[in-house]
Design a binder for these strands. Structure first.
Lengths: 200, 200
DNA sequence: GTCTATATTTGGATAGAC
DNA sequence: GTCTATCCAAATATAGAC
């Protein structure tokens, strides 16, 4: 069995790897473009031009424009998940909350288009595929479990927390893109939240 | 002088009034459409169809599609401003903050497209005209002066306040459109904010 | 002020040769 | 897997008759 596989599949594997590499290249170009021109300005024609293909050839890799968006959606969520994974959660509640908020807000502030794609519903008719949505759910659960870990298991408390953190994020993007006017408020916001939840 | 004006202008006035009425009708239809299909899905063709015109005739009323968006932008801000004007600000800090937050969050939650247009930058290449932006500034200043009125004159405090309120708004729209999952948290959020600012 | 006609561009997508 | 050719629909916008 093993012999058969190694005898037969190398070609397939290489083809598959090449396919994946091209796909990756297209998605990277798409990220660049939405970052530069806005999420809704993406067009397959322009995307093809950038990766030096005919527009029609993109259909070898993506069934539709929405499929491109769908892959970007999964991409973004995977990236955020990875950052949460790299996070070592402190025993100290305030330090833990600060760290989580900082990861999220800086992630959001880095890329307006990505924020729009992941957390707002701004593309007409687009909704993530079940597979991509599963990644988003994982992110959500990850965030919630960190909060639960520091003693916040009330759903409403979690909702207030996400409102606070996403508020800082969206205000940062809307009113001071590239700056830190709201990022600077994270510690203060976390203190406010923690005092309210646990008392001083 | 007066005799001349009243003799000459009635016709002009009537024509002008008719023009404004049609313009209003078009904008109302546009609101309906963006509410139904999303802000970015608006097209002049479809808009014309709804108001029973040829697409080209819209150009009698609006110089471009962006001009339509611009009028909607001003519309939305005027509406929010009117709601702030109707608000009688209590002497009690907590009641005042509650009222302001409630006005803003419910305004936001009513209409995803309007929120997108007024507070996010999701339409490629669109930016409001100076006249429309002036209305937005008025809204901003109105909100800030209310906060100043209850003793919050620190700019950073105001930023934290707007982050909190806009966070509740965007989460309400994103995670529970049409519901009240985050609207219910307003009082709690206001208590948290007030305690942090003024102590208990 | 509204229409017809039209320009022009762009968009997403499919069929079929190679 | 990439291309040529093509389709088709939709988009914004202008010119000019009525």
């Amino acid at each position: 069995m093993v012999a058969e596989r190694t005898a037969v599949e190398p070609r397939r594997d290489r083809r598959h790897a090449r396919h994946q590499a091209t796909k990756r290249e297209i998605l990277d170009a798409a990220w660049k473009m939405v970052r530069a021109d806005g999420l809704n300005a993406l067009s397959l024609r322009a995307l093809a031009r950038v990766v030096d293909m005919e527009p029609q050839s993109l259909y070898t890799y993506f069934a539709s424009k929405h499929s491109v968006y769908d892959h970007l959606f999964a991409d973004g969520n995977r990236e955020l998940l990875a950052r949460f994974d790299r996070l070592e959660v402190s025993d100290d509640v305030r330090r833990a909350l600060r760290a989580v908020a900082h990861v999220f807000v800086t992630f959001a502030a880095e890329d307006q288009a990505r924020y729009e794609l992941l957390f707002l519903r701004t593309i007409p008719d687009f909704e993530p595929s079940p597979e991509s949505y599963a990644v988003a759910l994982e992110v959500f659960n990850r965030g919630r479990s960190i909060l639960t870990g520091v003693g916040l298991d009330n759903p409403e408390d979690f909702d207030l927390w996400t409102a606070l953190v996403s508020g800082l994020s969206s205000q940062q993007l809307a009113n001071d893109p590239g700056g830190d006017r709201y990022i600077r408020l994270i510690d203060n916001a976390v203190a406010m939240f923690e005092e309210h939840m646990f008392g001083r």
